[in-house]
Amino acid sequence: MTRRPKVLVVDDEPDYLQIAARIAARAGCAVFTAATALEGVALASAQKPDMILLDVGLPDISGFEAARRIRKVPALAAVPIIFFTVRSELDMVAEGLKLGAAGYVLKPFDPDELSRRIKAAVLPA
């Protein structure tokens, strides 16, 4: 039996966390969730997810900083990270993509698009 891809969703906004988790689950993934960036970094280190959906405006440290810390874990150096956020300023988006993000999705998002991006990130080409 093939293993289900593991997806970590990090968002402090419960509704978005639930929506994104549900979309990832419907895409066939095993989902882990965290409501803070530091919790997300710890969960990522422990679970070694196949991709991470990461909010940018988190209460403790930013999603960008969390991504930098996650990338320092050797096993997660190349894990696909998709930022999903209300932050649409050009500089912010450019910085996120420069961090090697697999995607940048603006909230409120189109569920179909998020699902497509999750599948593209976790399924082999």
Binding site: E89, L97, Y104, V105, L106, R116
Partner: peptide, 21 residues
């Protein structure tokens, strides 16, 4: 419409929101 890292419509919103673009 569908770029590898972002949707075309999200990119349009970003470009419209910036003074330079």
């Amino acid at each position: 419409a569908f770029l590898p890292d972002m949707s075309g419509r999200d990119l349009a919103a970003v470009l419209r929101g910036d003074q330079k673009t």
